[in-house]
Amino acid sequence: MEPPHDLPYGRSVMIKTGDPRTLGVPPSEARLHFDTELQELGGGPRRRLLMVDDEPAFELSFYCGTCPLLFRRLETAREKLSLESMQERLSGTLDDPDDGRVIDAFSALLPEGEYLPLLLSVEPQMVIPGKAGDYFSDEQVTAWGVNQFWGLPEHPHTPYYRTFETAVDADAHLYEFVVPMVPPTWNERERVEEYVARMEQGTVSTAVAVSTLDVCQPAVSFGDDPSVHWGLTHFLLDGHHKLEAAATADRPVRLLSLLALGEGLAGADDCARLPALRAQPRSARATGT
């Protein structure tokens, strides 16, 4: 066995899990919703999409569950979903998912459905696709190989953050990502620097995300380790400047995740296992030679 690679990100802790609950508004009223793009001929499914203001923002893992895990930013992903009314509350530490009516406030942005609140403490590392720490050109290639048409790894078209990974079992591994709605280069430098300064003085701020759990397994693998990949992907609603600041300063930030239970490629039993898996010690996957 090869030794696990060094984990590039800091300490990550499960603070508390809330009770599953119905949140959201009718999809026609929600600023964010999940959708399916249909083929022009035949009407079959083409792409799973995360929509923001009725524009495709991200392409998600394909329905089959055997294609590689994916979150790919699209050209129409231009909006963040921060709430001005929550800025003061989220500038500090959230200790319980139900504190400060934060969930109620962000519920108005989401499509009606069942959600599981998870409150996490993470120390993120920003990843540039194709460079050190990139899941798509490292662990995913080890499982699926490169894209057989392009001869290249999948590409998310955005920087993103890695925060945690752990073993599910001998044949499966959980990988966690925090994905900004717009790239960090769009952040205001002064605000990032303000958060860095506050974090270096001990302040722990809070970000909010809507999340999906995708469980993907290669049907035919061209990689060396065709294992099952559980992808817990947090799409930031609020906290773009905070995540960049935390990655810059190597400091923790709280993350309130609202896991959309009906929108990922994971069954009810998998979602029920997630809180316990997320509470495990972080560990990288060891691959055979």
Rank of each mutant, 00 (worst) to 15 (best):
L70S: 05
K131R: 15
G288W: 14
P124I: 07
E59V: 01
V204T: 13
P27L: 03
S137C: 03
G43A: 11
P156R: 00
V52T: 10
A279Y: 11
E263Y: 01
T93S: 14
M86R: 05
G100L: 13
L116I: 06
M51K: 06
P180E: 01
Y160P: 01
A284C: 00
E88I: 03
S85Y: 06
S205L: 09
A247G: 05
P8L: 13
L60T: 09
H33V: 07
M181L: 15
G262Q: 13
R251H: 06
L261Y: 00
E75Y: 09
E37H: 11
R198D: 13
E244V: 04
I15W: 04
R285N: 08
W150E: 14
Q148I: 14
N187E: 12
T76P: 06
A266D: 05
D104N: 14
E2M: 13
T36N: 12
V102L: 10
Y195L: 05
T76R: 12
T17K: 01
E114Y: 08
S211L: 10
E123V: 13
G133W: 00
D134H: 00
M181W: 05
G231E: 09
H5K: 13
L83Q: 04
Q39E: 15
D96H: 15
Q87L: 12
D54N: 14
R282I: 02
K131W: 09
I128M: 11
M199R: 07
G10M: 08
C67G: 02
A209M: 10
P153N: 07
F235K: 02
A272G: 11
H234P: 07
P252I: 06
P8Q: 07
W186E: 15
H234S: 00
A207V: 12
R251Q: 14
L32Q: 03
E244M: 06
P226L: 01
Y63V: 05
G44M: 03
A284Q: 02
R285E: 02
L258S: 01
L255W: 01
G130K: 10
D19G: 08
R47M: 12
L90R: 02
D104V: 11
R198C: 04
F58H: 05
L74I: 09
M14R: 11
L70Q: 08
T166V: 08
H173R: 02
P252W: 03
G100C: 10
P97K: 03
T287I: 15
R101S: 15
D35C: 04
Q201P: 07
T163Q: 04
P159Y: 00
Y161E: 06
D138Y: 08
D214W: 06
R101W: 13
A167Y: 10
G42R: 01
Q217N: 12
G65A: 05
T287H: 15
M14S: 02
E176D: 12
E79I: 04
A284F: 01
S257I: 04
L110Q: 02
P111V: 05
D54C: 08
R72P: 08
D96F: 12
E37N: 13
P226F: 10
S257N: 01
A57Q: 03
E263W: 04
Y63A: 10
L152G: 09
C271S: 11
A249K: 01
N147L: 09
V210C: 09
A246Q: 07
R191Q: 15
L81Q: 04
R21D: 04
F106Y: 15
P183D: 02
M86N: 09
E200M: 12
F58Q: 02
S257P: 03
D54G: 10
F136G: 05
Y161H: 02
T22D: 10
